[in-house]
């Protein structure tokens, strides 16, 4: 029965490792995003070279985060992967459809303020979270 011992599960171990790697790259991406957003104004007074460097570093770390996310998805079992991919598809669809309609609202003068990308990102995150919860409940 040792072979079946869940504590030695290679799936679980690999999944935990992938989760930690994804968490670390996501954290690094958030930090580099904050540096790129606030440092030009508060630290180096819009020095062009430093600002470009901060943006490039943010993009590079963001790319590593995407790779970590891809590896995380590949490491999941087929049901978990199905749940997350369906959630991602729904979040992308909602972001696209609602995002374009939202942008249109200003063009046709139904709203007076400028639509912001963070509003759509927030909607996509909420949609993704709800879809993941719903997916897990569906297969419970």
């Amino acid at each position: 029965m040792t072979k079946l011992d869940c504590e030695n599960s290679s799936y679980q171990t690999k999944n935990n490792a992938n989760t930690i790697i994804l968490r670390n790259w996501t954290f690094a991406w958030v930090i580099t995003m904050a540096i790129a957003a606030f440092s030009p104004k508060f630290i180096w007074d819009f020095n062009t070279a430093l600002t470009i460097a901060a943006v490039l570093i943010n993009l590079a770390v963001g790319f590593k985060m995407l790779v970590a996310n891809r590896d995380y998805l590949r490491g999941l079992d087929e049901m978990q992967r199905t749940i997350l991919l369906e959630a991602m598809a729904l979040a992308l669809g909602v972001g696209l459809v609602v995002g374009l309609s939202y942008e249109l609202l200003e063009d046709i003068k139904l709203i007076t303020y400028q639509p912001e990308i963070p509003h759509i990102v927030f909607l996509m995150v909420i949609t993704y979270g709800l879809a993941v919860v719903s997916g897990h409940r569906k297969y419970q």
Partner: peptide
């Protein structure tokens, strides 16, 4: 065997074994 032990042997999560046993998820 427990679900966790079977999941370990098949390299999937316990939740997946539970869903397959209940007929809610068809394995590849």
């Amino acid at each position: 065997w427990t679900q966790a032990q079977l999941a370990s042997a098949l390299g999937v999560s316990r939740q997946t074994i539970n869903a397959i046993e209940k007929g809610k998820f068809d394995p590849s």
